[in-house]
Amino acid sequence: MGSFLGHVYPGLGFMFIGLWHLFNTIRNYVTCPWDFRTRTWFPTRFKGRFLKYLELLGIIAGSCLSISLELFIMPAKHQPLAEDWSIPVVHLKNFEHSTISFFFILYATVAIYMETHKLHMAEGMLHVIAALVFSQELFIFHQHSTDHMGLEGHYHWLLQLIIMVGLLSIVLELQLPYSFVASMVRSVSILFQGLWLLHMAFMLWIPACIPEGCEMQHDWDLGHGAVFCLDEKATLRAKALANLQFSWYLAFLLMFTMGMYISMLRFYGENGIYKPVNGVDNKVFEMGEEQGGHSQSSMDLVIDHDEENLGIER
């Protein structure tokens, strides 16, 4: 990070992973709600030994690219160390961002290794590792060596809120492994993190998008450019706009998620919709209610029909 591309690449990664998780979470629930379980990653349906793990391989590849950008491509000398092999102050942020990416590599590598070698993993172990990754990401951004102030600091504070929601939802999944709501919130938070990183890239690095009364200046202490507002009034206005943008993104994600849920419920969710059993529909129950005490026998009739059908299928 610390540049336009440094926000765009991870933003795209989080966005695609969030969309993939949201799609699979909703699909798994609407197709089989009674057998739903939360997952930290989703296999693809492509044929091939490793194509199944395309999500995890993408996380590893994207994280390696991020580390390469931070430590070898973006630094002027194409390496982040000083002549005495110490870490200069201006490159501390590069090591911090690379550490975040390294934790994602650890998570994906463990998941692939345990899956390919068919090793038994205790229930919830991957959730614990994922929670550790998000905790470390939140810790790095909260204790950043680059002391984000003003508008840039406000954008990063809002980013920490998104990460915290994702972390809390993963912890909730440990306690409620069958909770569709917790899994959906976690998926939306990953998508939101990606969108917000992309938004930060444009609002903090594209001059035409920077709020009125603020401008990009190079800060030699930070080692990169940063947005500074001319006065307190301009700062307050820029922060208020950021809050509005955050709220609009949240509203968009709410509409998008509910639209996807309703669409997939119509497309996939036939198993979750009530269907009459062998032509016995609600009229049976209505007849039972009209006859007074015979409603229970009508319900038994429906249950008996269902049990007979299950017996034949078995």
Rank of each mutant, 00 (worst) to 15 (best):
G2K: 04
L5H: 01
H7T: 04
Y9P: 00
L12I: 13
L12S: 01
I17F: 11
I17S: 05
N24V: 05
N28S: 10
D35F: 10
W41G: 01
F42Q: 03
F42Y: 15
T44W: 10
F46P: 03
G58L: 07
I59H: 04
A61L: 14
C64V: 12
I73V: 13
A76F: 05
A76L: 12
A82P: 00
S86V: 01
V89T: 07
I100A: 09
F102K: 03
T116A: 03
K118T: 02
S135E: 02
I140K: 04
Q143T: 14
S145D: 07
G150F: 10
Y155C: 11
Y155D: 05
W157K: 14
L159D: 03
L161D: 09
L167V: 02
L167W: 07
V171H: 03
E173H: 02
P177R: 01
A182Q: 00
S183A: 14
Q193C: 12
L195H: 03
W196L: 05
M203C: 13
I206C: 08
E212I: 06
M216R: 13
D219S: 12
A226D: 04
L230R: 12
L230V: 10
A240I: 04
F256G: 00
F256C: 06
F256K: 01
S263C: 11
G269V: 02
E270C: 06
K275A: 08
H294V: 09
S295P: 00
D306I: 15
E307Y: 12
E308P: 03
